[in-house]
Design a protein around this nucleic acid. Structure first.
Lengths: 352, 352
DNA sequence: CAGCGCTACTGTATCGTTACAGATTTATCG
DNA sequence: CGATAAATCTGTAACGATACAGTAGCGCTG
């Protein structure tokens, strides 16, 4: 009876602690292995046995020990969100985290935030995750056309999804905002308002969506016959003060722009400040269309036309895509593009 | 030699995988136990041995397997940030996460975000963490005077820190913003500007900082001889539209306030909208002081006096406090209060 | 009725780590 | 010189789970 029933615990687990497979095995009189297999609905376990095991497991609130599973199988049940510590003024991170966790809530996955200092190597956190097997899947943003993180993750076969596309001939899951379309529609809007000399506050050139936004901008300039005013020395990664100062200078120049496309909501704030520092008035001397991640600009400066990028939805899409990738779904089916939404005016109260 | 050297691996670990204690044991010719103890600087290991082990460990980039440690010791090396899914418009979460991860970066701790739906039970995530042993420490916010989460965590002995204080006679680590002081100084500022009829956009009454803010507000009203205008039916948890509409009504009333203290930055936006909907002008018909978590209000509405609450610093303090609690430091030494900072005007460029 | 195949279940070994209880060697003492 | 202590190192078992290789019992076939 010694060695024969070693796997069949006749001693009640000392208890006080949380239930394990052993607890269920003891309660049902089954072997630990049987319980394990019953809970994963293995084909070699009897229907009635499965039912009994499931019932007991539910009753005592059994939850598999993550460390046990992870040690044995390597499955971490962790999704890692890799972020740069340098955050944007308007905090794109919050809604993103919310969106991701909304999706993960219905799964066994936990969300771990893995930061890196932008001054250092963006590959460092990726390497860490690969080397330590810290996650089953990774979410990365600030994607570049030839992104070494994508190359490394692909090579090592770790599921991931990017917020933004790449141009490496690698098919991988992504979610992106249609920045081409955004810029195109923004120009259309400005031209419709009679603006002809347009300026773009663009993303930093090394990020993929830089070329998307520029492409949309330039295509629209051609289609709607407007002119570009150069502002390439400044981009949305510059500080607000830098943007404002540069834009003030531009607005004081001989032939200032009369239409502004802002690739970021916080950038828009600085542009407005620069414009006003140059003694110009928004809506009169120039109009502005901005991409925004929240609706406060619409509240404070309704004269700005805003196009909403729903980061929360992006978070949801990204989470679904990584999980899909982990589950082996083909990458082609895990790609999505979200369209800019023109924001309507601030809702007017009904009671008035 | 069989059983005698079972712990001393003479076979090189199949390799290709990451190094483990076994790898180091093989390379040094020591036992696994010795390596383990050498790496934690145990007193019964020779100095030279420790040196050798450390060297080899460093060379091959050994990192302890988290699952192994967790399974054996129960130590998760995880800090759990418990958040409500309902996020504030101005995203307090981003800088908070950044602050926390800044501190955790220098430690073995990972940050796991554990959300809950505010419509459901705020205790649910706490119970989950306690039941599954998911974390070594917890960070919670939106603290209430008698907070059941604090009671439960204290009772079960799981280290935690709160963002906000409690009033339960339980000494526990916290970090808080001095909302009493904020409201007091806000009133002082408004009275100095000649305002006498003041209104407060307050926190929801069930949160601890509600009474702090009110206390500061009322003490200042007495000290500086100003009057309060009632606005208790609305608080910062209401939607922007609700706040705006209610405030518009108030501003259209017979005897509207001429000074506004806003307990939240997003609330301030709605208040401004309400004021302007009532055809009043900020800075003329009324002045406003608002607590803000970022500086965009200062950029867009410089006429609002803003007091900055540095959430990133709060994140850092919270992280340090949980870790301190985990390390057994007395709770009294893990409490901190940050003071409101009057924000100066938007920095003016030097080059002008 | 031996032998085969099928169903339903089980024991053992293992993932990487550490607590614990030795074991070995050398130094020290009466 | 035998005993005792101190210093240093080591094997075993265990944490909870699962892969794998069985085993027991049963019905069916030739």
């Amino acid at each position: 009876m010694d060695s024969k029933t070693k796997n069949r615990p006749l001693t009640p687990p000392p208890d006080g602690g949380r239930p394990t497979l052993k607890t269920i095995a003891f309660m049902t009189g089954l072997g630990i292995t049987t319980v394990s297999r019953a809970l994963k609905d293995a084909p070699d376990i009897g229907a009635e046995t499965k039912e009994r095991v499931r019932l007991v497991a539910k009753q005592i609130g059994y939850q598999p020990n993550r460390a046990g599973v992870r040690l044995r199988t390597g499955k971490t049940n962790v999704i890692s969100l890799v972020l740069t510590l340098e955050e944007e003024i308007m905090g794109i991170t919050s809604p993103m985290v919310v969106g991701i966790t909304e999706v993960l809530a219905g799964t066994p996955y936990h969300l771990v935030v893995t930061p890196y200092s932008a001054t250092k190597d963006a590959l460092a956190p990726i390497r860490y995750i690969l080397d330590t097997g810290a996650a089953d899947g990774v979410i990365i943003s600030r994607t570049e056309p030839h992104d070494p993180r994508v190359a490394l993750l692909t090579e090592r076969g770790l599921p991931f999804v990017t917020h933004g596309r790449t141009e490496m001939g690698v098919v991988h899951p992504y979610h992106d905002f249609d920045n081409e379309r955004f810029a195109y529609e923004a120009v259309r809007e400005l031209v419709e308002r009679g603006r002809k000399r347009l300026v773009l506050l663009e993303p930093p050139p090394h990020l993929t969506f830089y070329s998307h936004m520029r492409a949309g901008f330039e295509r629209a300039l051609r289609d709607f016959q407007a002119d570009a005013v150069s502002f390439h020395h400044i981009n949305i990664d510059h500080t607000l003060v830098e943007i404002r100062d540069a834009f003030e200078t531009l607005m004081r120049s001989d032939d200032p722009p009369d239409g502004i496309v802002s690739g970021s909501g916080s950038g828009a704030i600085a542009l407005i400040a620069g414009l006003e520092a140059a003694k110009k008035t928004l809506g009169k001397d120039a109009d502005m269309v901005s991409k925004v991640p929240s609706d406060f600009l619409r509240w404070l400066r309704p004269e700005v036309v805003t196009m909403y990028e729903d980061i929360r939805v992006a978070g949801r899409e990204l989470a679904k895509a990584v999980i899909g990738h982990i589950d082996g779904q083909p990458s082609e089916t895990l790609q999505s593009l979200s369209q800019p939404e023109f924001q309507s005016a601030v809702p007017v109260s009904i009671k008035r």
